[in-house]
């Protein structure tokens, strides 16, 4: 199997680190070598955060080379667009369209680049929704990232049983039900498209 490279982009506080962790654990359960990276620190307070996961038979570096990302998992639109240089013509975008304005846009010094982001989506195979709103309908807005994982699951060689087992082991006990629903919802959402 060719190594699969997943880039995650989000905003500090969105749960990117846990999402990265779940992907890694699921990949290992499925029998693959895996390495991930995520940047935390000063960026955890509403700043940009990102992570990379590489899944394959043998993975050396956790970093994704330019043009080699197969999937970008955008927890926020601007933070998905930021990593376009890692994509290639076959890459997929799975993104939460719920915009979180950075300081420069909150202060009206720079427009939030909604139009550029829409064009960015169009350049690639994309799977988009306001996953925060979807998760809220399912019972908890915080399960948005699990909906994203559900969407992504159909493109990865990891069974839904393994995904769900991993989620059960890694989300808070009282959030297990909503996460199961969120995963299923994501998994079914784009079935027709793919």
């Amino acid at each position: 199997m060719e190594t699969i490279n997943i880039m995650l982009g989000g905003v500090g506080g969105q749960g990117l680190v846990l999402t990265t962790d779940v992907i890694c654990k699921a990949a290992l359960k499925a029998g693959y070598d895996v390495k991930s990276n995520d940047v935390i620190g000063l960026a955890q307070r509403g700043g940009m955060v990102w992570g990379s996961v590489r899944i394959g038979e043998k993975v050396h570096s956790p970093n994704i080379p330019v043009g080699k990302a197969d999937i970008i998992l955008g927890l926020e639109p601007l933070e998905a667009q930021r990593w376009e240089h890692l994509l290639n013509e076959n890459s997929k975008i799975i993104a939460n369209t719920k915009e979180i304005y950075p300081t420069q846009s909150l202060l009206e010094k720079q427009d939030y680049p909604s139009e550029e982001i829409a064009k960015f989506y169009e350049r690639y195979d994309h799977y988009l929704s306001d996953f925060s709103a979807d998760a809220k309908k399912l019972g908890n807005r915080k399960a948005a990232n699990t909906v994203l994982l559900g969407v992504m699951a159909q493109f990865l060689p990891i069974s839904t049983e393994i995904w769900k087992e991993t989620l059960r082991e890694n989300v808070p006990e009282k959030a297990i039900d909503v996460n199961m629903k969120a995963f299923d919802y994501g998994y079914e959402s784009f079935k027709d498209k793919s």
Partner: peptide, 18 residues
């Protein structure tokens, strides 16, 4: 075989108080 990263020019996101 690799290309040097030239990140996309976009609006920066500095951290802010919660």
């Amino acid at each position: 075989n690799t290309t040097d990263a030239e990140p996309v020019e976009s609006v920066k996101r500095t951290p802010l108080f919660c």
